[in-house]
Design a binder for these strands. Sequence first.
DNA 1: ATACTTGCAAATGATTTGCCAGTGT
DNA 2: ACACTGGCAAATCATTTGCAAGTAT
Lengths: 154, 154
Amino acid sequence: MTVSHSTPALEFDAPETVLNALRSSGLRVSTARRIVVHTLFAARGPLGAEEIATGLDGRRPQLDVASVYRNLETLERLGAVRHLHVGHGPGRYVLAGSGEREYLACDRCGELVEVDPGELDGVRAEIRERFGHEVRFTHFPIVGRCANCRQGGG
Amino acid sequence: MTVSHSTPALEFDAPETVLNALRSSGLRVSTARRIVVHTLFAARGPLGAEEIATGLDGRRPQLDVASVYRNLETLERLGAVRHLHVGHGPGRYVLAGSGEREYLACDRCGELVEVDPGELDGVRAEIRERFGHEVRFTHFPIVGRCANCRQGGG
DNA sequence: ATACTTGCAAATGATTTGCCAGTGT
DNA sequence: ACACTGGCAAATCATTTGCAAGTAT
């Protein structure tokens, strides 16, 4: 897009956007943070802290996990990152981008589907009516058996 | 009910029912198992392994947690017990009774609501139509903010 | 130069496992 | 008696924290 945008509230759409947010908060832009941010931008979905520490290719231990966790927490406080818990596995982190994202996971194949905005509004409304709870499947996704796995799929 | 029942498939409705299931499976009815089973029957909801080990009153360490976990697993294999994961906390175990139960949890006050059978059929149907996933909120409950907590309630 | 950051080790919390002594059948 | 169980300690996994050394500003 060639549209001139006047710095929309908080749109972390590129690595620099996030790094600038760090600077603006008086925090430092360290090598470790660059790596965490770039790794998240290079990912195609939520990543575990271990994956970030090891690098997407799983080869080199680019960072200590402890540092990864500390930085992910810092980035979450800035609103640039969020995380979710899929089944039993470790927490998984994603760039917050322009907003929250809801997920649907398969408890057999582990597939994690990102739900389009609004697609769960009906579900949300029904649950709110019946129980009064306001639900959001952003931090704890809906867990079920996907169509493929349901039919014995492998 | 005073209805004469001809041993309905698997209805674990009393401590002895479960203990008999153990015997029938060639497993032993040990003191530890009696305690686990009785504690679960005495509970008003899903319990953590630690609570079972310590006793509902939290006083005496009646059993070693390791034994509790081992026995809970055994009981789950028998179909007498099942467990769920609420938010970040430890796993929580319940008697399976006559069937599965779905839950709804509040991420603020921690309240765990047992959903009446069928109450989530609409939700289930909608999710299945849209995504093809067959969902069941028995192992991973729906997480949200309950009505009371939503309005600043405390 | 100074405060923020990092790596490494040790601590936590939940759950599992090895091992040998104890016990249900 | 004998195999199944229990307690206790040690191991695992994910995550956090303490601390001294390193670095961004």
